[in-house]
Design a protein around this nucleic acid. Structure first.
Lengths: 134, 134
DNA sequence: CGGTATCCAGGGCGATACTG
DNA sequence: CAGTATCGCCCTGGATACCG
């Protein structure tokens, strides 16, 4: 059994604790990619947590068909949303947050609200830092 | 003034709300990179939220000098930690979470604890999904 | 000790064209 | 409408060598 600090596995070494490469990172890496949060946010506020492909595409400025497809595929792979395919002509596809996907929203919300509160200071810091380099 | 849904800016279009590319993503992109969370976690549990370069390096399995340098530089740029340089021989450098950096910990903790709780299910989903593709 | 500088491989992402 | 297929750029991140 691993020892845990703040929910992350680590091992004791002679020089102190050493964290192991962690699962949280693999999930945050998904959320940190270019489009995932925007897709999740859109589904979060949609009625029934459910939207069709074209609604997502129109709702997210700048996303291409290819990137939207890849993004929802990855979310589907993680079990955070399900894909509903209706073989009509023209075809219709709807994406819906799973129970697990919806259960992530409060944590996501906690994080984005922190970011919202602190974003101005972060942007200031970046600007000041970049200026110092020139 | 932008309208907001869940703290994210959007504009009304004739087909419904459209989110704009968002600041949260730019911050989560940092956290989602390969090493940032591990660095933050280490500083989070360190006494005084403060560690020297070599301690971070030894504490994070697999990180290279170059990547640790880049990671702490980016965090410093965002104002989440400060760099303390001591011009001794050999030189010593310590990194310390700023107040803002420390204020991020609860939100980070909320997220990682959700991930910890749900990681087994996510891993299952990924495995099942990948199997279906073969 | 705590960095830079340089080189390189792989993957993320965009643009575009085609399809059931 | 909701995708695939293909191409190509750029950026992340690893390996290695050198420096104050």
């Amino acid at each position: 059994m691993d020892m845990l600090i703040h929910g992350r596995a680590y091992e004791q070494t002679d020089r102190g604790p050493r964290f192991k490469p962690c699962a949280p990172n693999s999930v945050l890496a998904r959320l940190g990619d270019k489009w995932t949060i925007l897709v999740m946010s859109h589904l979060a506020v949609a009625t029934g947590h459910r939207l069709r492909f074209s609604a997502l595409k129109n709702g997210i400025e700048g996303i291409t068909q290819r990137m939207l497809t890849l993004t929802v595929r990855n979310l589907e792979r993680d079990g955070l949303l399900t894909r509903h395919y209706f073989p009509e002509v023209p075809p219709r596809v709807e994406y819906e947050l799973t129970e697990m996907g919806a259960s992530m929203l409060p944590a996501l919300e906690g994080f984005t609200s922190w970011i919202k509160d602190n974003w101005p200071r972060i942007a200031e810091h970046r600007e000041a830092y970049d200026e110092r380099q020139t």
